[in-house]
Design a protein around this nucleic acid. Structure first.
Lengths: 152, 152
DNA sequence: GTCAACTAGTTCGTACTAAGAACTATATAT
DNA sequence: ATATATAGTTCTTAGTACGAACTAGTTGAC
């Protein structure tokens, strides 16, 4: 336990909270007929197209792992590859119309569910938590695997 | 963004922080020649033996998924199945000596790494974060997938 | 007591994930 | 021009995850 005598340390708190987020993410993915990894791919591509290299770096995958993931997403019509005009070896991966729609829906559903995880917190506590997590995310340069919602 | 004008909402904060924790978990697992799922299995079994049913519920896996995971862990000598004396259909899964040692090492390495994620926070901020995450974990009844370290 | 219904786990088939090594094709530096 | 580096794919191997069908043991109804 932490020095304050709280019931759970930061480490266990982070790991177990992550477990909850993972579960929620999986549930959302399932709802939309996606795997977690496909959902993640769509979420990353929501912001902009990526080359395979950048995409691998962002998702934390080897390029060889990525090829298949993108292949399957292409086969489902969610994503397409476009030649990079500046480099004929390279490729830009981007959402199709269908992929974009699905990404929005999946993203919204996931946001809703993750938000519910924090439903027990007061508004100021939510803000405090957001600030603390924001620090961790920034300090550790977490890639943009999930956009920030523009909630009014 | 949250109403406070902070740079990241709770939802994106939770998702991206989870991404960091997942990456760290994967890195630790790799260091010890484990997959993430095997690491998780060992961590769960650190507290006590589990039947296949409870284990599936704790890890969020179907029983059919679990059989293979446990099989592979058995083959690696990390875990064994014991008949349940009270129910001849059932089985208790528990760590072997080797599995127990590996679990401790993996657990310690993961704790260290997750702790480093929060290294940029002051001690009171860590306590605040721990308390807030603790609330989420408790509210959502996150299973004991990761023990709390007894840090003095 | 026996038979039906339930429960614990396994098996099997299918789809997907992830990595490394070897490869193709293009780009870059000298 | 040529060596070297880079972008991506292919192939192979191991592991993950699920549902459906199955076996064996348990429990409830009568």
């Amino acid at each position: 336990m932490g020095k304050s005598g709280a019931d759970l340390g930061v480490v266990a708190g982070l790991v177990r909270a992550s477990f909850l987020v993972n579960a929620v993410y999986a549930e959302s993915a399932r709802e939309y007929g996606l795997t977690v990894q496909q959902g993640q791919l769509l979420c990353v591509l929501m912001s902009r197209p990526y080359g395979m290299g950048d995409l691998g770096a962002t998702l934390g995958l080897e390029k060889s792992s990525l090829t298949g993931l993108v292949d399957r997403a292409v086969k489902r019509g969610l994503v397409r590859r476009e030649p990079d005009p500046d480099d004929r070896r390279a490729v830009q991966v981007l959402l199709t119309g269908e992929g974009s729609e699905l990404a929005e829906d999946f993203y919204a559903a996931t946001c809703r569910r993750v938000d519910e995880l924090a439903a027990g917190l007061s508004t100021p506590d939510r803000d405090r938590l957001a600030a603390l997590l924001g620090t961790i995310v920034r300090d550790n340069e977490a890639p943009t695997v999930f956009l920030d919602a523009l909630q009014p």
